[in-house]
Nucleic acid binder design. Structure first.
Lengths: 108, 108
DNA sequence: AAGATAGTATATAACTTTGCATAATGTTAA
DNA sequence: TTAACATTATGCAAAGTTATATACTATCTT
């Protein structure tokens, strides 16, 4: 069975969008944020701050990145803002990352 | 069924190693290089240069990064140096990326 | 309604890292 | 030694990270 190869320009475009996503994931705080949200479903900024021990402005800045990249959705409830993962390509990658780095027998 | 969450320090360690890999993949040239090698099995620097149209010193620098990160192996044959993907975590990620960004119906 | 407070976001600026071009250097074969 | 293939050195521009300080929004209290 022959493996189909993309033509050069399609490959460039695919590589650029894949890289966009990976650059966003390639930051420990952002990755943990997404991972945590993927597990938990929804959390407020304050809960994330406490759980992940990221100090507030840094956290807020990274959440801004995730919002800009459309990787998370938010909803306000009173003075709290709830974050959750937006379904999409990021989730598939996250799962693959999780399997490789946090799966059974990987947490030592 | 309850989803198990890693403890904080294990999570940090896992996030750091996952990010290390993703940072390496989060560069269009490097990603295409790995993708191309994954498809082809083995290629010389010159073949990669021509196929991906990356100019030579840049290519060599990115190959150095991939070597340093132990994502590729090399073998010399006369004046040619053959590169190939080293089996490991990168391959699983690459496959997930490929499915999301280059799979059926994604190359427009 | 005014001020105080809790939760969240943004601006600025310093610092660090990365990307890549040019140029120089190794290595092998003819 | 010359040509072809590949790597390394150097330097600068661009991008990413994060701390400090400030602003915004909602709630609570008086």
């Amino acid at each position: 069975m022959r493996v189909k190869t993309l033509n050069p320009s399609a490959m460039h475009r695919a590589a650029d969008s894949a890289c966009g996503l990976m650059k966003t994931l390639a930051h420990p705080d952002r990755l943990m944020l997404l991972c945590q949200l993927a597990h938990t479903g929804e959390m407020t900024v304050g809960e994330l701050e406490e759980r992940l021990d990221i100090h507030q402005p840094t956290l807020s800045q990274q959440l801004t990145v995730l919002r800009d990249e459309k990787l998370v959705d938010t909803r306000r409830e009173g003075k709290y803002i709830y974050y959750r993962v937006r379904p999409g390509a990021a989730l598939a990658l996250l799962e693959a990352v999780y399997r490789e780095f946090c799966g059974p027998g990987k947490n030592r």
